[in-house]
Design a protein around this nucleic acid. Sequence first.
DNA 1: GTATTATATGAACAGATAAACATATGAAAG
DNA 2: CTTTCATATGTTTATCTGTTCATATAATAC
Lengths: 120, 120
Amino acid sequence: MTEDKNVESGEYLCAHEDTVKKVKEEMPEDEFLYDLAELFKVFGDSTRIKILYVLFESELCVYDIAQLLGLTQTAVSHQLRVLKNNKLVRFRKEGKIVFYSLADDHVTRIINQGMEHICE
Amino acid sequence: MTEDKNVESGEYLCAHEDTVKKVKEEMPEDEFLYDLAELFKVFGDSTRIKILYVLFESELCVYDIAQLLGLTQTAVSHQLRVLKNNKLVRFRKEGKIVFYSLADDHVTRIINQGMEHICE
DNA sequence: GTATTATATGAACAGATAAACATATGAAAG
DNA sequence: CTTTCATATGTTTATCTGTTCATATAATAC
């Protein structure tokens, strides 16, 4: 410890000064990192992951999603709202039936990256 | 509703029978989806995202991570354990100092995919 | 040995969150 | 207009999770 001194703030750090400078420069805004965490938080629930997964194949209505996953309609509806707010799914109304589908292929890519990490 | 009948379970579903069959076939084990959610849950916290982010540039010791992010040593240590348990970071001991670094480039890829989704 | 430094760990508390239940909206059918 | 069906929403509750505080380990210096 106290191997190097960060002149700017007066803090003593173990890392070299230019390393510290680089890290600080590359660091995005706090708000951005918060949003990023929020996004991953949406994927961080098995119910929502399951919902996204059944939508891989095709669009489905709320009732079918609930039936396929053995969940209550209310639970699915609540989670679909979270997914919708985060632009991970979109919907299409046909009378009283609402069909949900994946918003874009980012969803697939993010999940695939996650799967690759697990399968090692 | 009740447009189609799922013969197997006797449930009435809106989607066509072969769609339902496909969805069910493609569906991974519950345990796998649970693990996947667990992984994303790790990314779903701004403190952990910040820690991963400062490690993008270079390996850092616990104290420096805490200083750079304005966090307590304890909080960082706790979160590093979570990251370590999920194989997102690895560490190297040098005397009493422990240097942490990103485990592999999956971390970078997953975060980048997330960033792409936000930046639209 | 004791003191100090770096990190880890355990327990407790506060805030977040997913599910369940009841209820509301909104569209079609009668 | 009333009923029924599909979905949405508000509220409560139980559980989970991140932080803090106190303490433990583990290595170095004295």
